[in-house]
């Protein structure tokens, strides 16, 4: 489908990375990174609370600054890059969140749902399209559904007016063979481009991203230094370098992306994402890596082993937004220990 081996790069450093710092990114940090990304020619820069627009909450964490401040700051510092937001229906509403975001100058709306629940995105996708905005559908936790079901859900998003569908490996559970199976089926089924968003829990983020483009994905997500929840995402600098070596064009300046990576490491991160033992457990168990911090915190409070908590969460097939189950699991694990 691609005319000239072109891959569209979307950079969620300032959105997914917010998970890594408990949504505490400041306006100054957003301004600095946006300028750097803009200089590097990154086509799409995603900004916001880790769970996207309108998600700042006790449930998933309160953000240091509100959506208005985040988005207007980003807007002021992006000249050629498009400004994107992540929208999860159930958190964000059209009236309270999307309409203001359009006012603030957001160009691209990435409307996301759990991989089996695409029909909750109908009105949000429809609304953004009718407002003349670029809209991508995003399916999260896609390791939990087979390729046929993913294709059905993605087809719904296409019918609603999505201009691309991004598959997220939110749990970092994929191996390249999984990517090939699912992405190539979607490329075959859909008439709109397919994208891939990798997490690095099992060290496969770059390999999985490349597997995706090799079977027809046209959009890839990558974050500076892999800044993201848990083990982090695809590392953007490395991704650009690999794509360049493989003769894909991205329109992104490698040196300036390397500079943006250095800046991100210096200005945004307390620690660079690393594949911790817990992240491996979260990847293997198939649980969203955004659960890492609350699982560690709550496990400590209840005095239980976070690995046990993760495997139990995986067994219960929890999905993003269900952080409250952690308390119940920790409580029941603690209870069962007393029973012994």
């Amino acid at each position: 489908m691609s005319q000239d081996n072109h891959i569209l790069i979307s950079d969620p450093t300032l959105r997914d990375g917010n998970h890594a710092v408990s949504h505490q990114l400041t306006a100054k940090q957003i301004a600095l990174y946006c300028s750097a990304a803009d200089r590097a020619g990154i086509p799409i820069v995603e900004v916001g609370h880790g769970n996207g627009l309108g998600a700042s909450s006790l449930q998933v964490g309160l953000a240091a600054i509100d959506d208005f401040t985040m988005l207007t700051t980003a807007r002021d510092n992006l000249k050629s890059s498009k400004l994107a937001v992540h929208v999860i229906p159930g958190f964000a509403t059209i009236e309270k969140d999307i309409k203001p975001a359009i006012e603030y100058g957001v160009d691209v709306f990435r409307v996301a749902a759990h991989c089996t629940e695409a029909d909750v995105t109908e009105r949000h996708i429809h609304f953004c399209r009718n407002e003349g905005k670029t809209v991508f559908g995003v399916l999260m936790m896609t390791h939990m559904a087979d390729r046929f079901l993913l294709a059905e859900e993605a087809t719904k998003m296409q019918a609603y007016g999505a201009e691309a569908v991004i598959l997220m490996d939110s749990a970092g559970n994929y191996l390249p063979s999984d990517v090939v199976e699912k992405v190539s089926h979607l490329v075959e089924t859909l008439s709109i481009p397919v994208g891939f968003h990798a997490h690095n829990n099992l060290g496969m983020a770059i390999a999985n991203s490349i597997a995706a483009v090799e079977c027809g994905a046209l959009i890839l997500d990558g974050c500076a230094r892999g800044f993201g929840a848990g083990a982090g995402n695809t590392q953007l600098e490395a991704l650009i370098a690999v794509l360049e070596r493989m003769k894909y064009s991205t329109g992104v300046d490698l040196y300036k992306t390397l500079d943006a990576g250095n800046l991100a490491e210096r200005e945004l991160m307390k620690v660079i994402p690393t594949i911790s033992s817990t992240s491996i457990v979260s990847g293997l168990s198939g649980v969203f890596s955004g659960f890492l911090k609350p699982v560690n915190r709550i496990s400590q409070e209840f005095g239980v082993n976070p690995r046990d908590v993760f495997f139990e969460l995986g067994r219960r097939k929890v999905v993003a937004g269900q952080e409250d189950i952690i308390i119940e699991v920790a409580k029941s694990l603690k209870g069962s220990k007393y029973d012994e």
């Binding site: 489908m1 691609s2 005319q3 670029t134 691309a164 046209l218 959009i219």
Partner: peptide
């Protein structure tokens, strides 16, 4: 080509 990723899917 408003989807930003170039495609030429014509019907």
């Amino acid at each position: 080509n408003t989807s930003l990723a170039k495609i030429n899917d014509r019907t």
